[in-house]
């Protein structure tokens, strides 16, 4: 373990994107009064996959790696919709997942928002409509914000969260 800590100290902090930090400082000021009341200083996200290819999920997982370290911005992925402010929805809203997605949405306490992630929920991915696909998700849920991309890169997702926070 000692070798690990030696390497750890030598490596230092990897977390990057200073431009986002700067943007965030500005945003933090903007939303101070507004969001502090609604989110108590932190935004809790429940990610729901409604039939993606798993690339959007991989990029959301990447948000926790040392390069992005999303939690430093006060944004957390939570395990239960009951702990969430926001549902982050990926995938084409399959016929089989639709009732479960709606169920998860019902479990989120008010006030709540849905952010759609990637090309699938808005039917901009190459997938064509079939009987097994119920997208666009906007026909089933109120979408407050959309983060485009196939898949959106981690930095696009962070920017998307910031744009959402500015909007509400």
């Amino acid at each position: 373990m000692i070798r690990f800590w030696n390497r750890r100290f030598k490596t230092g902090t990897l977390t990057e994107n200073p431009e986002i930090d700067k943007e965030l400082r500005i945003i933090r000021k903007e939303m101070k009064n507004l969001v502090k009341k609604k989110f108590a200083g932190s935004l809790a996200i429940r990610m729901v996959d409604s039939g993606s290819c798993n690339a959007c999920e991989a990029e959301c997982n990447a948000l926790s790696n040392p390069y992005y370290d999303l939690e430093r911005l006060g944004i957390y992925f939570v395990a239960s919709p009951r702990h969430a402010d926001v549902m982050l929805l990926s995938g084409v809203t399959t016929f089989n997942m639709t009732p479960h997605v709606l169920d998860a949405y019902r479990q989120i306490p008010e006030p709540k928002w849905v952010i759609s992630l990637g090309a699938c929920p808005v039917m901009e991915a190459p997938f064509e409509k079939t009987f097994a696909i119920n997208a666009p998700a906007g026909e089933h849920l109120p979408i407050a914000h959309h983060i485009p991309g196939c898949p959106p890169e981690p930095i696009d997702i962070i920017r998307g969260f910031l744009a959402f926070l500015r909007k509400i």
Partner: peptide, 11 residues
């Protein structure tokens, strides 16, 4: 499984 069934084969 098959919650993600998109009917790719048919598509």
């Amino acid at each position: 499984h098959f919650y993600k069934y998109r009917a790719i084969e048919k598509m």
